[in-house]
Amino acid sequence: MFVRPFTVRRRGTRGPSSRGCRMSPNGSNPREAVFRSAFNPLSGRERARGAVRRLLGAVRAAPGAVSSFGRSFPSPPLGPLSFPFVAHHLPDLDDGPDLPLPRTVRGRVLLAAAGAPVIALLLVALWLTGGLDDAKAVQFKTAEPGKAVQNKLLKATLHEASVGADPDLGGYRLEVRAELESLADEPVPASQLNTLFKVDFGRKDLKAETMRVRLVRLPDTELGDLQPKMPEEVVLVWTLAEGDPADDKIKTAEETFGEDFLAEPDDVSAQLAEVDKAEITVTGAKFEPGFTDPAKRWWTDDKTAGVYTLPLEKG
C-alpha cells in the first residue's frame, strides 16, 4: 500500500505563534484579544448587547448625526468609544479563516437545527448505498445464467454446464454452452481467451485444465479466431484433472514436460460424483506484451467481470 509521508500543517493553532507578535493598529496584540474573549465571563449575547449599547451611545454623542443621516457620520468616534472597539471582534487574520461558527447561542442552535437533518439524510444515503463495508465485496459480481458479462475484449453469456466422459481425448470434461462476441477490431485467436475464464468446483482435488472453444454450428470444428463484432455460439470445453489438495508447489520442468505429460488422463469420476455445481468466473481482459514475447496479446487482468454459478448436468 502506498503510504504518504506524514506531515503536519499548522493552521489556526491557538498556541504561541512563532511568527512574532504583530501589533494591531490601536496598540494591542490581536492575540491578546482572543485570550480576552476566551476568558470573558459574559455570554455572547450579553457581549453583543453591550456592543450595540456602546454604538448607540456613540451615535447619540456625535454632533449632527441625529439630524441628517448619511451626510455627516461621526468620525472618528471619541469619548465613550475610544476603548470598547479595541479587539473583541476583530477577526484573527494571523491564523487564517476559522470555521465560521455563529457567535450567538441562537445562531448555533439554528445551525444545529438545520444541520442535523442534513447529516441524517447523508447517513441514510450512506446506509442505502451499502454503508462503509469493504468495497471489495461489491466487486464480487454474480451473473445469472443467460445474462451477458462484458470485459474489454468480449461480451460473454454463459448458459448451462455439463460434465462427463470425453470421447475425443479420454478422461473427463466440463462443457459450457456460451455466446461470445468480440469487441476488438481485429481477430483474436481462441487460445487467447483461455485465461479469461476460471473454473472452480469448490474443492481442491478437482481442477479444470486448458480450455478449448468448439463451434455449435460446426460441431466438429474448433474456433480458430474470434472475429470482431460477430456473435458466435460456442461450447467451452475444459479437460478435468485431479488436483492435489496438499501440493501447492510450482511444478518443475521435468514434472511438467516429463512422461507424466503424456500419461493417461486422470479419472475424476469419484470427484465428479460429489459436485453438483461449478463456479465460472469471467475476468477482465488487458492487451499487453507477454513476459518473454514483445508481441501484444490478450491476458486476464485478474479482476472479476462476473461469476456464474452453473448447476452441472451429468452425462
Binding site: E186, P187, L218, G224, D225, P228, K229
Partner: peptide, 16 residues
C-alpha cells in the same frame, strides 16, 4: 490473409 473492411475492423481468414 486478413480483410480490412474500410471502416476500422479487420477480419481474419476462416479456417473452415
Amino acid at each position: 490473409a486478413e480483410l480490412e473492411t474500410g471502416e476500422g475492423t479487420t477480419y481474419g481468414s476462416s479456417g473452415v
